[in-house]
Design a protein around this nucleic acid. Structure first.
Lengths: 350, 350
DNA sequence: CTGTTAGCGCGTTCAT
DNA sequence: ATGAACGCGCTAACAG
């Protein structure tokens, strides 16, 4: 593989001159430019960015660590990140943690070895250990979607608490009193916030007993929690005790719930109402009918990336003046979209 | 950021000794190992893989260039690639071309600059130009899913022709005579092969006129082609001329078709039968009912990666003996899954 | 406008 | 068992 020295030799100039032509940095006479360009062409020269990065101390690579690109929500976030990054000349490495702390840490180590210029992280669990590691390495970091207890950091996330509150209010407004929330894992702030918003609305309505189920943000967990919610009612022996509405706290849980309800022969919304956080993937929307709280996924990715790029500039200009800037927290609004999966409860509350 | 020299200094040894301990290559007394490890810990030292790769001429990175990770089919392929790669100690960079030649070429250039060790490519279009570029740079390449006319290369793909043939035969066996295929872009071998398999079955059945629509592998294109297929019949003024069955040649086209049929009030399978290539994403399968030809997506990714890794070894051991090995073509079988979207035509053929 | 020198951080080669 | 010297390919810093 040809090096810049080969190019320089062929063009009859010094390597640095070739470098200047190739990177259009610094002066070069038109004649020299021609010769260098031709040499590049002739040799099929492709610059070695390893060497370049080693010298220049930047790789033009960002990393996005998330839980699962299989989920269309994250796919959309990823697109937002990629678009914003590539517009600024950066590439993005994607990493799936599957919510596993251990995988997350392995990736972090690898990414820092590769000297990525910045990291966008959807923290798998509430551990702050990983963040300390990143800080120690002086790599700019922006959190995405999830807060971390006791950690001040730049973050872009949505108003999960508020969205959950509104969605619960919507169900209450339709006359539901027994509303069960099917939520994600404790310790994940977006999950906790949605439970909190739900509880606030429930308590405000004077309902003594919230119905909270906690599992994973997966289809199978949504299925199981739904079965549990239905089963608990069956166990009590009184149909009146069955929840009349379910609040699925993400799209995959909603899909699992729909599946479970279908398998149990429970019709939505005739027998039971269903509302969810996050829209379902476009692919399922042959006939959209789920009432949802939608997060601006693309925008989350875009803004987080822009914030990260800002921090890179800060770091570059600040150089060795280690002034501590304050962190930024960007909270994006959640939009409620009413469709047809909610209806007043069929069995009037006694 | 600490370098290996800092570690060496702190441990009171030469840099190379520290290197040997860190990479567990070569000898080192137990006492020295201890000191080095402690220095690493104390300084928070993380090796610089840019420098390491520059020296060792390998990056342990592979690239997967595909058209659209949004499609669950490709997501699954990607998982197969990632699993096989990480098991061998390699990382994967993912790139979306959106079927655009230009994006593909930009990514290729970038990946070669980054000196990835190998490339898995789902070629966007039939151009062979890009492949010549890769060959010239001596980077091992395995094609995925799509052949390239006039190009001999390692490839892992499915039997699209055979699968389409079988699926069409299935429809014919149910008594359908007017079967329309909604296909992908000409020049993309998987699309062309499916049309070919369809045509073979149609001709064998003695049907004079195949009904072929060609568009993109997208939801909107599936929608449009379906409207066109329905509209053509309407235009002819005779319901008898309407297709009684549709063959969607990938999952996104199938979703678009379902949407269009729903919007037009055409019931599946009562009024019209539908079969598709590729299964729908798990997320939509609340109640699976589509009869499909399924490709082993995960396995495609896995085997392609293994083949690529084999080639890396070949290249490493062959060194400068440029023996030309013959290329391998791995063709995976397609499985037909019969469900409930096919039914004999309601309007008997005159 | 162009060239010389040096070094980014690491590991191969050869010496001790 | 350990170390010195060198170079991977490139560009910053400093001439001229």
């Amino acid at each position: 593989m040809a090096t810049i020295r080969d190019v320089a030799k062929l063009a009859g100039v010094a390597p640095i001159t070739a470098s200047r032509v190739i990177n259009t940095s610094g002066y070069a006479s038109e004649e020299v430019r021609q010769r260098v360009r031709q040499a590049v062409e002739q040799l099929g020269y492709v610059p070695n960015s390893l060497a370049r990065s080693l010298r220049s101390h930047q790789t033009l690579m960002l990393a996005l660590i998330l839980t699962d690109v299989t989920n269309p929500f994250w796919t959309t976030v990823a697109r937002g990140v990629e678009d914003a990054a590539s517009q600024a000349g950066f590439n993005v490495i994607f990493c799936n943690t599957d919510e596993a702390q251990e995988k997350q840490d392995r990736y972090l180590e690898m990414l820092i070895q590769k000297r990525v210029d910045g990291i966008l992280l959807v923290p798998a669990r509430s551990h702050a250990q990983s963040i300390r590691f990143i800080r120690q390495q002086n790599v700019p970091l922006v959190l995405l979607d999830r807060r971390l207890l006791g950690i001040d950091a730049d973050i872009v996330r949505c108003d999960s608490e508020g969205g959950a509150y509104q969605l619960t209010r919507l169900l209450l407004g339709r006359g539901h009193r027994r509303i069960a929330i099917l939520s994600g894992p404790p310790g994940v702030s977006s999950a906790d916030d949605r439970v909190a918003g739900y509880c606030r609305a429930i308590l405000e309505a004077g309902i003594p007993q919230p119905l909270i189920y906690r599992g994973e943000f997966t289809i199978s967990s949504g299925y199981q929690m739904t079965c549990a919610a239905l089963g608990a009612a069956a166990g009590s022996g009184r149909a009146v005790n069955a929840p009349s509405a379910l609040f699925a706290s993400n799209n995959f849980i909603a899909i699992g719930a729909l599946k479970a309800l279908h398998d149990s022969g429970v019709a939505v919304p005739d027998a039971l109402s269903l509302a969810a956080f996050d829209d379902l993937p476009a692919a399922t929307m042959i006939e959209p009918f789920l009432t949802v709280a939608v997060q601006p996924a693309y925008e989350m990715g875009r803004q987080a990336t822009q914030l990260l790029l800002t921090r890179l500039n800060d770091a570059a200009s600040a150089a060795n003046t280690s002034v501590h800037r304050s962190f930024q927290e960007i909270i994006l609004p959640v939009a409620i979209i009413e469709r047809r999966s909610i209806r007043p409860p069929q069995i009037p509350v006694v």
